[in-house]
Each structure stands twice: as structure tokens, then as C-alpha cells.
Amino acid sequence: MKISVSLTLWLLLGAVSTNECADCQQTFPQDVYAALREMTASLVQLKADMRFLQTTEQTAQLKTEVDNLKQQQLVRQVAFSASLVAGGETTIGPFPTHTTLIYKHVVTNIGNAYNSNTGLFTAPLRGVYHFQWWVGAHGDGGAHASSAGLFKNSDHIFLAWEQQTSHFGTSSNGVTLYLEVGDIVSVSLWANTLAFDNLFHHTTFSGHLLFTM
């Protein structure tokens, strides 16, 4: 009797285990495949998002680099040109001492290194610059010459000079200078001389950066 009951229980347990395994075999693979498909889709989306973020970051970095390069290029662009007056007619001088000329009519001032309130050019970069200046002369019977000298800080560099007894004339000069940041370049009316200017702009001061160092 005991043997019969044990055999029956063993057969029932075997039947249940077999059915459950059959259910597992039918359900488990479907769940795995579904999970794998979801994981694959998630990975694909994640890769796409990462590529998008990388592209966005690279684009932002590239834009920043381009903006910096543009800014550096702008800083390296220095040029100005100005005359004493925009219109009308004027004669400046004579003065007993050298007097800084203030060129009020500014036609170009790239880099804003020239100050039309003081007449001073201040080097924004260390480098080599070229300057030119002209002085207009209107004869007053030879009583006074027309002359202007270029100064680097307090040092006189070159002079333009014209002695005009009558009528009209001009004198000019130019120089290439090495400047440190903050060096000041100006043009001064020479002591006891005159400078003439009118709407044709005869008395001028110009300069530009050749290259940095």
C-alpha cells in the first residue's frame, strides 16, 4: 500500500514538474527576446543621443574657437588716419614750445588706439608700426616755418619742415617704429612754427600696425 501511494505521488509530482517546465519553455524565451529587443532599442537610442550631444558640444566648442580667433584678429587690426579740422580753415601757432597737435577729424580708427581728445596714439600690442604725418604751410612772408615732429613717448624721432614765404606748401615724413604695449606716439607742432589746414586736409597724422612681435 505504501509503495502504491508513493508511486502515485511521485507520478503526480513528475507530471506537475513537466507541465511547469513546458510553461517555462513557452514563456521564458518570449520574455528574453522582448527584453533583448528593448535593450537593443535603448542602446541604439542612447548611441544616437550621445552622437547628438557630442555633435552639439563640438559645434559649441568650434563656435567658441571661431569667435576667439575673430576677436584675436580684431585686436590685431590697428590703423588710424586723422586731420586737424573737418572743415573751414585754421592756422595753429606759433607757440613758444613744442605743442602736441590734436587731430580732430578722424576718418579711420580701427582698434581705437588713437585718441582724438588728446592727439595721442597708444600702442595696444607689442609690434612694429608705421606712421606718416603731413603739415600744411601757408606763407606769411617767411616769418614762420611750418614744422611738426613725431615723438615716441618723450623722445623726438623725425621732423617735417617747410619754409613757405608765400602761397601754399606741405611737408611730410614717415617712420617705422617698434613699440611696446602702452608706448605713446604723437606729433607736435615745433616751437615758433605754424600748421595750416582746411577742408582739403593738408595737416594729417596716420599710422597702422605692420606686424606683432
Score class of each variant (00 low, 15 high):
N153M: 02
L120F: 07
T91Q: 10
N192D: 14
I3D: 09
A35P: 02
Q132W: 13
T193W: 09
Q164C: 15
T170V: 14
V75A: 11
L210V: 13
T8Y: 04
L194H: 10
I157W: 05
A41C: 00
D197V: 01
F121V: 01
T55C: 10
Q77C: 04
I92M: 06
Y129E: 01
M1G: 13
V5P: 02
V181M: 07
S188N: 10
A15F: 03
T193Q: 06
G174C: 13
R76T: 08
L159A: 11
E162M: 13
L179P: 00
H201Y: 15
A35L: 15
V16M: 10
Y103D: 09
E20L: 12
Q163A: 14
S147P: 08
G182L: 08
I110C: 04
E180P: 02
L12D: 08
V85N: 04
I92F: 04
G111A: 12
G207C: 00
A191S: 12
R37S: 14
G111E: 09
N115E: 13
K47E: 03
A195F: 09
T91K: 06
L7F: 08
F168T: 04
A79K: 04
V175A: 12
S188H: 13
G169P: 01
F205H: 09
G127T: 06
Q30L: 06
S172V: 01
T165W: 06
G127V: 02
A48L: 00
D49T: 07
H201V: 12
H98Y: 14
K47W: 01
A35G: 05
A195V: 03
V5L: 14
A137M: 01
S186R: 01
T100S: 03
I3N: 10
C21F: 11
E57S: 13
Q25T: 13
G207Y: 03
L43Y: 01
G182E: 08
M213L: 14
T56F: 11
I184T: 07
G119Y: 06
Y178R: 11
H105F: 15
A82E: 04
P96E: 10
T90Q: 13
G87R: 05
A123L: 04
F168G: 00
V32L: 13
F205S: 07
L179T: 01
L199S: 14
Q73G: 02
Q61V: 02
D197W: 11
T165L: 12
A86Y: 11
A34K: 03
S186N: 06
V5Q: 12
A86I: 05
A123M: 06
I92K: 08
N117W: 06
A48V: 02
N115K: 04
S188L: 00
L53E: 09
G136I: 00
R51I: 08
L150V: 07
F205G: 08
A79L: 03
R37E: 09
A48P: 00
G88H: 01
D197L: 01
G14F: 13
G136N: 00
D31Q: 12
V5A: 13
L179Q: 08
N19Y: 06
H98I: 10
Q77D: 04
I110W: 07
T59Q: 14
D67F: 03
V66T: 14
A82Y: 09
A191H: 10
T55M: 02
G169H: 04
S6I: 15
Y114Q: 03
Y33I: 11
Q164L: 05
Q72S: 12
M50R: 09
D155I: 04
F211D: 03
S17N: 07
Q25N: 15
G136L: 05
C24F: 14
H167I: 11
T176G: 00
T55V: 05
G182V: 09
A160E: 02
D140C: 06
